[in-house]
Structures are given as C-alpha cells and as structure tokens.
C-alpha cells in the first residue's frame, strides 16, 4: 500500500483541523500540510477534496481581495464541519490505538517465537 492510499481520508481530517483553527486559502493550506510533514502528496489534491467538502457543506468559501494581486478563495468551517472534525478525532484516536496495539503485540509475539526457536 502506498502512502497516498493510506492518506485518503486522513488528509480530510487534517484539512478540517487546519481550517477550524484559521480561515485559509488553497496555497496556504497546502503549505501548512507540507510543513507538518506531508511531502509526498501533490498539492493539487486538496482542491478535489475541498470541492467535495463544500458539496457536503463541511466548509464554506468566500472570495477576498489579497494585497498581492488576484482574489483568493478563503475556506472556513461550518457547524457541520466542526462536528465532522470531532468525529474524525474520535475515529483517529481509536484507529491509532488499535494499530499501535496490533503492532506492539505482534512484535512481542515474534520476539517470543524467536526465543522458542532459539531454545530448541
């Protein structure tokens, strides 16, 4: 499985979290994600995601003039988006717990197995 496939869905939650904190425009959002360590995804992927989130009424957008030239589209979270973010955080915590449990536990088992074979 590639990172891109794993990222699907997770990126949604991260975008919601960033937007909740502060109104952002597209480039700013991509830049923030990159600074957080998401290097492997192509920046443009955020736009189809944002389009979908707008359709689902999780985010809204307004066009604002910028000091440096063209107008920018700023995104902000709707109440529905905030609820979705809360749900994402719950799901993520669950998932993270489960995955680390699995990985830790299985690593221990392997270690025991290794011990057993060593003894024989």
């Amino acid at each position: 499985m590639s990172t891109t496939q794993m990222l699907k869905g997770i990126l949604d939650g991260c975008i919601l979290a960033i937007i909740k904190n502060k109104e952002v425009y597209g480039y700013e959002l991509a830049d923030k994600l990159e600074n957080y360590g998401f290097h492997s995804f192509s920046e443009g992927t955020i736009y189809p995601l944002l389009l979908r989130m707008q359709k689902e009424e999780l985010v809204t957008s307004t066009l604002k003039k910028s000091t440096a030239g063209p107008r920018r589209k700023y995104y902000s979270l709707t109440p529905k988006g905030e609820k979705e973010l809360e749900k994402f955080i719950d799901r993520w915590n669950d998932l993270q717990n489960n995955v680390s449990n699995v990985l830790q536990h299985e690593a221990d088992v392997k270690y025991n197995k290794g011990d057993e074979t060593h003894e024989k």
Binding site: Y27, S42, E43, G44, P70, R71, R72, K73
Partner: peptide, 26 residues
Amino acid sequence: DEIILELESHLSEAEKKGKSIDKIIG
C-alpha cells in the same frame, strides 16, 4: 471559473517558490 482562478493563483505562488507543476497536479 472559480476552480481555474484558484488553481491559477496556486500555480503562480508555487512557481514563485520554485516548485514544478508536477508537485501540484501530480
């Protein structure tokens, strides 16, 4: 028009920072 406007300004800002178009659209 809206999505084009958005992508255009994204590409312009990204290019100013020396990123190639592949980094944006894959």
